[in-house]
Each structure stands twice: as structure tokens, then as C-alpha cells.
Computed example of a mutant assay.
Amino acid sequence: MYPSAPPDAYNTYSAGAPPTAPPPPATYQQKMNTPRPGSGLTRWSTGLFHCMDDPGNCLITCLCPCITFGQVADIVDKGNCPCLASGSVYALICASTGMGCLYSCFYRSKLRAQYDLDEGECPDFLVHCCCEYCALCQEYRELKNRGFDLGIGWSANMDRQKRGVTGAQVMGAPAIPVGMMR
């Protein structure tokens, strides 16, 4: 009824070395820092819709996107236009025309050019026009993942780099030792 299998069909590895294990999968950071085939550009460190990777920034961006935009613009402009000025211009454009996305997409393009980031499937103006808050959050996370503390501005970040301070230290309550204490 069924054709018989050849004698070696169930023992394919009998005539040689056992198969080798596949190489370990690349980490997420390795995948993001590798260029896309044929483009030579690196990928964003987080996706466009990964807003909840930083819920605090997501909340601030939803309530007042001019703050996030101002912080991003300050770093992208390398301190030439301070956070307050950039955020104020963005807020005025949004209040008067509702088209702040046209202003902010310019900074996305500038950020991509500075760090050789891939544009992706959608052009910058379309990303900002359709998903303004998500785009601002992604740009914020990208700069944060590149070692910037967006809350202190460009000049303080440069001072921090000159001193060799790595990573942002959060000021607050002193650390409490873990374990049983009496």
C-alpha cells in the first residue's frame, strides 16, 4: 500500500559526522547595528512603535510633545538652538497651523544623516505626519541609547563626555542594601 522507504532513510547521519549546532542567534543590539543588505546604513536602536520602552517619555510626549521635540532638537542641533527655543517654535507652529510634523520631520532627517540611520519603509515626512508622537519618542530613545541624557542638554552632555562620565546617574534617595536587616 505504501512504498517502502530506502534502507538509509531513517538513519541519514549514519555515514558521517553528526550535524553541527546552528550558530547562536545575534543579540538585538547586534542586529540593530548591522547595516541592511545593500544599504550601508544602520537600523534604529528601537522600533517606531516601541514607545512603551520608555513609558515616562511616552507620557510626556503625549501630554506635551514640544518638550520631547525641544530635547531632541537641542542634541541634533548640537546646542546651536536651545531646547526652550526649539520647543517654543514647535509649539507655536502646532498651535497656529497644526503642522508641527513638517518642522519635526526636518530634525528626523538631520538625526538620520548624523548617525547614518536607515530611513525604513516610509519617508521621514510620512512617519511624522502619520505617527508624530511615536516618531518623537523613537528619536528620543535613539539619542538616549547613544549615551545622551536629553534632560540636561547638549553642553552638559559634552562636559560629561570630557570628564569621562558614562551613563546618566539618577539623583535621588541613597541605595538601600539588599538582604535581611534588623
Rank of each mutant, 00 (worst) to 15 (best):
A5Q: 10
A5F: 06
P6W: 10
D8W: 12
A9Y: 14
T12A: 14
Y13S: 13
A15N: 14
P18H: 14
P23M: 14
P23L: 15
P25Q: 15
A26D: 14
Y28K: 09
Q30E: 15
Q30V: 03
M32H: 08
T34E: 15
R36K: 14
G40V: 03
L41K: 13
L41G: 01
L41C: 04
W44E: 05
T46C: 10
G47D: 10
G47N: 09
G47Y: 05
H50S: 12
P55D: 05
G56Y: 08
C58K: 08
L59C: 09
I60P: 00
I60E: 07
T61G: 01
Q71C: 05
Q71K: 12
A73S: 10
D74V: 07
I75V: 13
V76I: 11
G79F: 02
N80H: 12
N80S: 09
P82G: 01
P82L: 00
A85W: 00
V89N: 02
Y90W: 10
A91I: 02
L92W: 07
I93R: 09
S96T: 06
G98W: 02
Y103E: 08
Y103P: 02
Y103L: 13
F106L: 14
Y107G: 08
Y107R: 12
Y107V: 02
R108V: 01
Q114R: 11
E119V: 10
E119N: 08
V127K: 10
V127W: 03
H128A: 06
C131D: 11
C134T: 06
C134M: 07
L136N: 12
Y140W: 04
R141D: 03
L143K: 01
L143M: 08
L143S: 01
K144W: 03
K144E: 05
K144G: 02
K144L: 02
R146A: 10
G147A: 07
D149R: 03
L150S: 07
I152D: 02
I152G: 02
M158F: 01
R160F: 04
R160L: 03
R160N: 07
K162A: 08
G164H: 07
T166I: 10
A173W: 00
P177W: 02
G179K: 10
G179C: 03
M180E: 09
R182M: 11
